[in-house]
């Protein structure tokens, strides 16, 4: 049943997203929309010595988008861009129904979304935003 999507850990993660705010001093800010529903994430990124120092965001979206934004924001600081890209890749694989543990175990909360293809974009939106932010940051650096 599709309401299995709404298990406790997703709901709790989404609640945490509402408490996370924007960064006061961002190196890069990107805004990304989900054309399916008009949902929007504005994501701030700050890098230090080639690693992610901090992420901030304002997310106007469904529980799945909020939960993904929360996990991303909690896990990203201190990691390298490569790890972050790997987490994005793992999340895509997980949503495609592939076996294996994602680099960030918390991403497994999205396993019930595998069956609901129309909602994959909701989960991926924050990760697409951070990829765009990383690309913009490396563009500015070069």
């Amino acid at each position: 049943m599709t309401s299995d999507l709404y298990h406790r850990r997703i709901i709790e993660a989404a609640k945490r997203a509402r408490e996370q705010g924007r960064l006061a001093a961002a190196e890069v800010t990107v805004t990304r929309d989900n054309p399916l529903c008009g949902d929007r994430i504005t994501l701030d990124l700050r890098l230090e010595d080639g690693r992610i120092a901090a992420l901030g965001h304002r997310t106007r979206g469904c529980l799945l988008t909020e939960a993904a934004a929360a996990i991303l924001t909690e896990r990203a600081p201190g990691t390298s861009p490569e790890t972050l890209r790997r987490a994005h890749r793992d999340l895509r694989r997980l949503l495609a129904g592939e076996e294996g543990d994602p680099v960030w175990p918390e991403l497994a909360v999205f396993r019930p979304v595998v069956e609901v293809k129309s909602r994959h974009e909701c989960v991926l939106l924050p990760f697409e935003a951070v990829e765009e932010a990383l690309a913009a940051a490396s563009g500015e650096a070069s």
Binding site: C37, G38, R119
Partner: peptide, 21 residues
């Protein structure tokens, strides 16, 4: 509650509605 989350739960009751803009 976001419209998509509402529609997703309604689907569990066999209720087809649309959420979005």
């Amino acid at each position: 509650v976001h419209a998509h989350d509402v529609c997703q739960i309604l689907d569990g009751f066999g209720v087809c509605t649309r959420g979005g803009h």
